[in-house]
Design a protein around this nucleic acid. Structure first.
Lengths: 207, 207
DNA sequence: GCAAAAGTGTTGTGTCTACACCCATGT
DNA sequence: ACATGGGTGTAGACACAACACTTTTGC
């Protein structure tokens, strides 16, 4: 997997835009200073090549982003991959805000992945792929804030996701730290598969 | 363009799911009984191959759908293309409801294109690519009904699209037919480029 | 006048945001 | 008691769907 792909123009590359949230930051997985990639073998499914590219991370959700012609003339299909922080401990993860050194087409793909994630956070349960198995609302809020890039209130986050049935409460509480505070309830995502929770902005089908 | 592509496994195909609305039906463009396609030349941009595939139609909007491995082992990138009926007069257009004869992977791509269109009708101005330059609300309603597959009220369609600034009224009226009725006002889409009009279902950025 | 088609007024409902307030813990 | 963090109650703002009603035409 680590071998350099032969850049003849007939080979097809699979690129990964793998994202996770560490601390308060959204980070992307790099390998040798650029997006991880693998060369597709003949008749190979795209997803297995993707798996080779991001072997290092245990992705919780994967979806195809875009196919484009790279600067060197090769075709590449990019995937968006998401992982909870605790399942992506290995690898060279870098904050998406600090990618000036990345080649321009790779930067564009990261931006596309980020945009896709941002959009889907608003109308799907895609947060399941970035959050650990159980979490408090505050912890989930940090994930959403890092991924969205703007502030979100824990109050409203909880209500939106509970109303939609995306979150379920689980037994147990998180004990407060040294500074006190009420113990926090624990939640999990009700589903670990992508689901659209807010299908129609308008023009809904008649009942 | 009409030549059969050589099916060696290294060539890359570009497939078109070109849709338009004729009468009350959503139709897809076929060529020789399957989706129009072209083989990508070395270093060729995907869009120019797409243009070769659908030469016959003057598409108003194009976006990439999906890349997959076809049954014969070739890679194919599918595009969704939309055209107003009056700009797609030539070609073999068939109702999307009657595609039993199509190969299964092509059928799946048509379904993906239809789903993408349906979703975007609800939160973007994508109707511009299916509607003629000017139209009445009733005419636009027919387009939406055909594309969505369920009933939409002209009243609410007008209000949603005007509220969002997607439609603009234009001078002149459509004279009623023999059976009478009030003359209809004419509208146009304010923009001929895809715009997201309803970005956030929830978790909007703070003001 | 009557039917047909277009368009407006109005009401009710649901979802979201914002913010005040209450709760449970540590020190 | 007080600070800290978690959580609920409540009110306001929109946007949407549904439907009654009015307008403008042909016959």
């Amino acid at each position: 997997m680590g071998r350099k792909p032969v850049p003849d123009s007939t080979s097809h590359a699979v690129l990964a835009v793998a994202l996770h949230v560490r601390g308060a930051r959204l980070e992307v997985l790099l390998r040798d200073g650029s997006l991880p990639s693998a060369t597709l073998a003949a008749r190979e499914p795209l997803e297995t090549a993707l798996a080779r590219a991001v072997e290092v991370a245990d992705l919780a959700h994967v979806e195809q982003l875009e196919t484009r012609v790279l600067a060197d003339g090769r075709l590449a299909t990019a995937y968006l991959g998401l992982a909870p922080h605790d399942r992506a401990l290995r690898g060279d993860w870098r904050p998406v805000a600090e990618l000036a050194a990345l080649p321009p087409d790779h930067r564009g793909l990261v931006a596309a992945g980020q945009a896709r994630l941002r959009a889907k956070l608003s109308y799907t349960n895609i947060g399941f792929a970035l959050a650990p198995a159980t979490f408090t609302i505050s912890e989930l809020r940090e994930v959403y804030v890092a991924a969205l890039g703007y502030d979100v209130s824990a109050t409203n986050l909880q209500r939106v996701l509970l109303r939609r049935g995306v979150l379920a409460q689980v037994d147990g509480r998180r004990e407060p730290g040294r500074s006190g505070g009420r113990p926090a309830a624990l939640f999990r995502f009700a589903s670990a598969r992508l689901e659209v929770t807010d299908e129609f902005a308008a023009l809904r089908p008649p009942r």
